[in-house]
Nucleic acid binder design. Structure first.
Length: 641
RNA sequence: GCCGGAGUAGCUCAGCUGGCAGAGCAACUCACUUGUAAUGAGUAGGCCGUGGGUUCGAGUCCCACCUCCGGCUCCA
């Protein structure tokens, strides 16, 4: 048995320690200051409580109160902050039951079962109590006990949620204690509360126990903590700035769309919003044509029998808009696929027709639950840039690859960085496991072949097949599903799709469902936030605004506007040039041309959004704009000059 | 759907323990004809989310509903 061991420090030097030494022992061996400031040890890359033993040969890194932006260092600080919150709540609200309290991306939360509901106003009082704890100071100690002991302990304390957690916890049971508060917790935690220099409660929400809406709804208190007040201030400042990018705010300011309670979740698109929509539509049409898609149009309203056949009735009836008629019930389509499948099934198909790629961007209606609506990102009218690819088994991988390649092209065009997620068979799936092994495998190999990194969401697939989703974050960091590529091995048979193969036998095609923007609504919402409303030239609702300096320059300004084959406006308001420049800036118009006595076709005063100015000839300006919108209709150099 | 907040002019927001509904911006009119982020003066603009209740009197207090916001759940 070895009585000593070695660990490797970040500078590759070795540190000799007694066998079984902890991270804190390592810190002490290096220096007392380090031991005091240490908050966490990273052992072979994994965050570990300072109190736990290191293993021989491990590469370690000690994180301290100076690692103020390290995610692991922030997590441990916030996890300990959550425990302080629980201690305060237990003291202030006798009879409260505690559930769980983990660190999260920008802070932490703790879930409680309060005997009486609390309101947001209570947060001040709770926060003051935590501040008092911080002023007093708290130190954490860790203890490992048996499962039975832990259960007995939490039963005695009247903490049913903790008892349940002990029952389902894996591995050893550990407790962390600070002051008179002891919590079931895997850790890691700080040594003491001194590093918590900034603590703030940020919100109150309902949250279901174990994330299951059939179980009791608990009260979740959100908070955040930092190693310095300046970091907290900077975080709050960033949040404030993010709100300025919010598409709901910009949509109104830039006159793109609005929402009205007369039709919740259904945007009214204004002329300027429609310019963006139509540019995306033109892009969709152009690229689909280039990639072998054909356009179709299928009905908006179908007898409910169709949805029973497709399998949607059973799962989504509650979310469909129904139209009762005398002896029928109709439903407005919530998706295009059954319509496309009926279209495919209308004729006897040959394998020579495959792959057959049907595209349609029809409005879909989904009666989403009231509390889920959100600006353009969660709506009741969803216009997907949809397509269904009917193909034979051996064509699947190439077609999936093609969709991913197409998606990559589109997202690169907007400089969007989507994260790819593969979702696998859900509990309520149709079809056999063998079928799913095959379809999931096909998606994986296409992702690998395209060289895309992805995460896996087990059990998140559609009921008819696995899918690859592209996710984007909004200005406040919320993740939204954008594009999706789904492989369906179930619906085509249910809806009677067949083709005759080279073997002269009938086969059922596979169908790839794909939408790459996802929906026009959500995509425009995310684009608005991505560009903070300053759309690139080719998308901008107004591309150029011409400002005649005085009344006498108006004719010349109009003349110039007419010779720029773009979306150009002349601002004739009786305002000063300064005021009109300001208006154009606020409206985030890409280019402003000021036209006065000094200007001519040889010399134009061109200002870009943001303030950069240059003098260009008309030809020079047109050349510049042409590079920014190479494919814009009517803007081809050959049509002008 | 659930928990917590909010709804006042087109927009952003004031309006105290119940006592005549306000400001800035935008709009409109007039004057100015302007040189790169706000010229000046004036005018108009309100079912105080909707319905009910309490009160001599309700934007303000109570109840219900609608919508929005932050979460949870859901998301074909």
């Amino acid at each position: 048995m070895a009585s000593s061991m070695k660990v490797v420090l970040p500078d590759n030097s070795e540190l000799e320690l007694p066998a079984g030494a902890s991270g804190l022992d390592a810190a002490r061996a290096i220096g007392p200051k380090l031991a005091e400031q240490a908050v966490l040890v990273r052992a072979d890359g994994k965050p570990q409580d300072l109190r736990l033993p290191l293993a021989d040969g491990q590469r370690i890194q000690l994180l301290t109160t100076r690692d103020t932006s390290d995610p692991d260092a922030l997590s441990v600080l916030r996890h300990s902050s959550a425990h302080l919150l629980a201690e305060a709540v237990r003291r202030l609200y006798p009879g409260v039951k505690i559930a769980i309290g983990p660190p999260i991306e920008n802070g932490f939360y703790y879930d409680f079962d309060f005997p009486e509901p609390i309101a947001e106003a209570d947060l001040d009082r709770i926060e003051a109590e935590v501040q008092r704890e911080l002023a007093e100071g708290r130190a954490w100690s860790r203890e490992e006990i048996s499962r039975d002991e832990a259960k007995a302990r939490f039963e005695a304390e009247g903490e049913p949620y903790k008892v349940e957690l002990v029952d389902t916890a894996e591995g050893d049971i550990s407790l962390y204690r600070q002051g008179d508060f002891t919590d079931l917790c895997r850790g890691p935690h700080l040594q003491d509360s001194k590093p918590i220099k900034a603590f703030k409660l940020t919100g109150l929400a309902g949250a279901y126990w174990r994330g299951d809406e059939r179980l009791k709804q608990l009260t979740r208190i959100y908070g955040t903590a930092f190693y310095s007040q300046a970091d907290l201030d900077a975080y709050l400042e960033r949040l404030e700035q993010a709100r300025a990018r919010d598409h709901r705010k910009l949509g109104l300011q830039l006159d793109l769309f609005h929402l009205d309670e007369i039709s919740p979740g259904s945007p009214f698109w204004h002329p300027k919003g429609m310019v963006i929509w139509n540019e995306l539509e033109a892009l969709r049409r152009r690229e689909n044509a280039a990639r072998g898609y054909v356009e179709v149009k299928t009905p908006l309203v179908y007898d409910k029998r169709l949805w029973e056949r497709s399998g949607h009735w059973e799962k989504f009836r509650e979310n469909m808009f129904l139209i009762p008629d005398e002896d029928h019930t109709f439903a407005i389509k919530p998706m295009n696929c059954p319509g496309h499948m009926l279209l495919f099934a209308q004729q006897l198909r040959s394998y020579r027709e495959l792959p057959l790629r049907y595209a349609e961007a029809a409005p879909l209606h989904r009666n989403e639950r009231a509390g889920t609506l959100h600006g353009l990102t969660r709506v009741r009218i969803v216009t997907q840039d949809d397509a269904h690819i009917f193909c034979a088994r051996e064509q699947i991988e190439d077609e999936i690859f093609g969709c991913l390649d197409y998606a990559k092209y589109l997202y690169d065009l907007f400089e969007l960085e989507a994260s790819f997620e593969l979702s696998t068979r859900p509990e309520n799936k149709l079809g056999t496991d063998e079928e799913w092994d095959f379809t999931e495998g096909a998606l994986r190999s296409a992702l690998d072949r395209r060289g895309l990194a992805y995460t896996v969401n087990e059990g998140d697939g559609a009921f008819y097949g696995p899918k690859i989703d592209l996710h984007m974050r909004d200005s406040l960091g919320r993740s939204w599903q954008m594009g999706t590529v789904q492989l369906d091995s179930q619906q085509p048979a249910r809806l009677g799709c067949h083709f005759v193969g080279a073997d002269n036998a009938e086969h059922v095609p596979y169908v790839i469902h794909r939408a790459l923007f996802g929906s026009f609504e959500r995509f425009i919402g995310i684009l608005t936030e991505h560009y903070a409303g300053a759309f690139p030239f080719w998308l901008a609702p107004v591309q150029v605004r011409v400002l005649p300096v005085g009344e006498g320059h108006r004719d010349a300004a109009h003349d110039l506007a007419a010779r720029l084959p773009y979306r150009v406006e002349v601002d004739e308001a009786d305002d000063t040039v300064g005021k009109r420049i300001r208006s154009a800036e606020v409206e985030k118009i890409p280019f402003v041309v000021v036209y006065g006595d000094k200007e001519s076709d040889e010399s134009l005063a061109v200002r870009e959004h943001g303030g950069a100015q240059e003098t260009l000839s008309l030809a020079g300006l047109r050349a510049k704009l042409a590079t920014l919108a190479p494919w814009q209709a009517g803007a081809e150099p050959s049509l002008t000059s």
